[in-house]
């Protein structure tokens, strides 16, 4: 390996770029498929999205350039505002919910007091295996106003029957519960593998010093898991901003629980207003870009330390 590395600069001098590429043709060839596919199916579409957002187009003909018109429409559009705010709400609830629940489950899975660990590990991963669309149909019935089990339980506990999916007030709740239910196992595993890497000695030393379980959790586990928890929060963020299946299957009245990406789909492929849908996509792209920039910054600053 070292020999090859040393040879690289001279190859560039002798025969230029083509010679270098030829010399290293094997690795370049091996990684080429990714870059070609990325170019055709990801980079070009994303750039093209920006272009179409300045047009009025139904996807077939009659493409008309309209400047910033779509954006003007968008900022007037209450559906956009509602979907965007829905997504902000989903985002906050999901990040907190997923990280807290996944952390609790991971800590319990890691606890020496848990019996039949393997069984628990296997079963708690199951929700992630279940298709979100099928689970959406199941949740639709569980949360049904009249026949649903959830209302039945609430009533038997002395509560009030609620129109979960029939009212704009509550329609977001089944969606976010479904999202969290299905995604938590994935993050449980990530956090659990982080816990496995924490040396037992820390806890032993803390026990000797007389620190209780909660203190150990707060002063040892949390600080050592900081990076992993942050990684989880970012991943949830990306997932929630492109959420589609959950809110699409469990759609409430109007845009009461529509996600931003769902709005893109509905404008683009139901009313074939590709220009407007692209303008909405641009907002989505900007959100994702800002998130990844934050991530990049933080990673950089950590490497600097």
């Amino acid at each position: 390996m070292g020999r090859r590395k040393a040879a690289a600069p001279s190859a560039v001098k002798k025969g230029g770029v083509l010679a270098t590429v030829w010399k290293y043709r094997a690795p370049y060839l091996f990684i080429a498929p990714f870059f070609i596919l990325f170019l055709v199916f990801q980079l070009i579409p994303v750039i093209w999205t920006f272009v179409i957002s300045f047009a009025d187009w139904n996807g077939l003909r009659n493409l008309r350039w309209v400047g910033f018109h779509q954006y003007e429409v968008m900022f007037q559009d209450y559906m956009f505002r509602e979907a965007f705010m829905n997504n902000v709400w989903y985002w906050i609830v999901a990040v907190i919910g997923v990280v807290v629940i996944a952390l609790m489950i991971a800590v319990c899975l890691n606890s020496p007091r848990l019996r039949a660990k393997k069984v628990f590990q296997t079963v708690t991963f199951l929700p992630y295996v279940c298709a979100s669309v099928a689970m959406g149909l199941i949740f639709m019935m569980l949360f049904d106003e009249n026949a649903g089990l959830i209302n039945e339980i609430i009533v038997s506990l002395g509560g009030k029957r609620r129109a979960w999916l029939g009212s704009s007030q509550y329609a977001k709740i089944p969606v976010i519960i479904l999202f969290i239910w299905r995604i938590v196992p994935w993050f449980t595993i990530i956090i659990y593998s982080g816990l496995l890497n924490i040396s037992k000695e820390y806890y032993e030393a803390a026990t000797v010093d007389g620190a209780g379980v909660l203190q150990q959790f707060w002063y040892i586990t949390i600080p050592l898991l900081k990076n992993i928890l942050f990684f989880c929060a970012l991943t949830v963020t990306i997932d929630i901003w492109k959420m589609f299946n959950e809110s699409y299957t469990l759609s409430g009245p109007g845009t009461s629980n529509t996600s931003l990406f769902q709005l893109v789909y509905e404008n683009g492929f139901k009313s074939f207003n590709l220009g407007y849908a692209s303008a909405l996509s641009v907002i989505l792209i900007l959100v994702l870009l800002v998130i990844s920039m934050i991530q990049y910054r933080l990673r950089r600053s950590e490497e600097g330390v």
Binding site: I44, P45, V46, W48, T49, I238, L274, S281, L289, I291
Partner: peptide
Amino acid sequence: TMAISAEAGAIPLFVI
């Protein structure tokens, strides 16, 4: 590239 997912370009992707 992991940060920007293919969903972001869904509209042109359909055209492609």
